[in-house]
Nucleic acid binder design. Structure first.
Lengths: 204, 204, 204, 204
DNA sequence: AATGAATGAGCATTCATTCAT
DNA sequence: TATGAATGAATGCTCATTCAT
């Protein structure tokens, strides 16, 4: 948008470097098992400098999480919205979801923890914000299901539950992949099959 | 089974009281945001007494988690094993799962966090043990799917993924319930429908 | 002296058992590295019972030390006093000293520490008492030297220093023995030879 | 030797200040009766800063002891080695010993305690190191006696015992001086006289 | 009288945060 | 402006001592 001065560009580059290092550490050991000195050491800045970029440790963690979460959210929303019909919206969503996560495994570690891990890292601060955004997103996803139900494509099941359920399956697979990347490969089609009635053979 | 002396019974009662208080606190605020002094205060014991029952904070947390996790595991396994056919095994599993979790919401908070929360609370100690047990359990659940596949009841999909997926859906619903108990009710049948091909209307 | 009732005899026996165990532990690990629970465990009494015999840990340590120190002191004094002439008084003193210490190696550990270790175990409490008694004893030993000097047997050197010096040599040998019992054997005669060169006037 | 940066010089100065304060406290009250907070308070640093210089309390104590002990050891060895004949080596040793100790009374408190006090302050850690170094030193001192014996200057007595004995006398005098500096003055000549009666062959 | 469960003050240590240089 | 030395509140844990049974 705007032209950034060299100073500003440099500032953002440094900020990004710090966040990268922090993600590396936080994802491996969790918020409480990483010290500001470690982040300083690994990012080759001084502790003092860290505090020039972020007001405190919590702030750093929040920035780290929320910025990437926002990015994820946008990609996913786009995936849903630019699709023609509901069925392909769901497929694109799953597809993008998997791709995005596979490209950001470090962050996914944090993401899955934060969206399930309850109020564990930071006290109620970021918590609500994350939950709120997540709910907004799920509502958008459920809107797809809702429209599908209205069109008679999907069964009449609470669309919000469908959204939650779909995300639940995807996350479960991704988490298993994180733990043991070799075993049990899966793809968008598998999830589509699983979710859209192919488990039971003689379904009819 | 055995007759316990008054001393022994009292010991176990006190131990249980401490664990109850600890669960309350840990589930609300997480391992790192709870102090031994708080557990002492709330359980109306002294810090010293806490250390008579548990070697250290980590030990207390582990005991808390593993004992209940074991109990859960047994109930769930039983649900699977005592069923006649595969279909009812899955139904009983979902049913028991929901019931058990609904009765132990505090603990579920912890459980969902630990089985997703990555390596965040305790350093790799309990970690592996939990993951290992979880895998064993999922293998048992997937055995049901496997048999079902062999009998031609289920589609030929990696049974371990089916197990993971089913659990993912259940946990997703339960987690949503934890967050907002009023909205979006669900039950065993809903999950059965969802999982066994009723989402897509004209599936055939 | 007095007839002791069975109760009283038992009391003293138990007290002695506790002191024995305490000596064993204190001599190995020092005052601060031994807990009352350990003394209780090893002596097969309860902690509560320990406090029936001794007001507190310090008291127990003091009793342990002072009683045996008193016993030592008496034996040594006797050795000095019942001797005919000064020369044999010194010889008997050295002799008894070595014998006594060899029979009480555990305690000697403590003794050497307390009479050198400065104010390390207990704060200034027993300290003064020990030092005072020790000074009294050294004064008695120096009296022997003094008389010897007056008789012209010994050189005219501050008799208190002679007493200190003699004790210093004996303790140094004993300490070395404690550390490495096999090497560098010594006996009364050696110390006599060592000590009475120039001290003895008609050496030339 | 090397040029030190201002930072480095300041670091060493601060470290030295902490050690000075710690010596003051430890020598008065012993390892276990001094808290890190006291050292912090008296040295006018914060507790945290103490831990920047020393890994833990034990480490601080060890540094304190071993560095000065090393210095002492070197001075004493030099005293022995640079002397022409055995007799003057012993005299120089006594002389330097007294001078060094008189200048470092605080430390001597600790030194005498540690070289006699048995295994009382720290568990076996430093213990062995100290004993080992002490033995090495005594061996060097005894080598002087050995050579003297071979030359026929000294009586044929185990030279290691002579070394131990000489040190015992010196330490005994120094310890007495520590306790009561006014009374019973002594000097090198006195110790020489005391020690070299029969030891010196041609005494007669 | 004897027990040992319970107490809680006290200590070592950590680490987010500040600020003089 | 960037640094990192210094801070000190906070926490896990120990152990001498008490007292209800």
């Amino acid at each position: 948008m705007k032209k950034l001065s060299r100073k500003e560009r440099e500032f953002l580059r440094h900020r990004g470097e710090i966040l990268d290092v922090a993600l590396e550490l936080f994802s491996k050991r969790g918020f409480h098992n990483v010290t500001m000195h470690e982040i300083a050491r690994d990012s080759e800045f001084s502790v003092g400098t860290l505090y020039k970029f972020f007001a405190n440790k919590e702030d750093l963690y929040k920035a780290l999480f929320l910025e990437k979460a926002e990015e994820f959210s946008l990609v996913m929303q786009e995936a849903i919205e630019k699709s023609e019909d509901e069925m392909s919206a769901i497929r694109t969503f799953i597809d993008q979801h998997i791709k995005l996560f596979m490209k950001n495994l470090r962050f996914v570690q944090l993401y899955l923890a934060e969206t399930r891990g309850a109020r564990f890292n930071i006290g109620m601060g970021m918590e609500k914000e994350i939950r709120q955004k997540h709910r907004v997103f799920l509502t958008k996803l459920s809107a797809v299901f809702k429209k599908g139900i209205e069109k008679g494509i999907f069964e009449d099941i609470d669309p919000y539950l469908l959204a939650i359920g779909l995300e639940g399956v995807i996350h479960a697979f991704l988490f298993n992949y994180l733990e043991d990347p070799q075993s049990h490969p899966f793809d968008t089609e598998l999830i589509m099959n699983l979710f859209f009635g192919k488990v039971l053979r003689n379904a009819d």
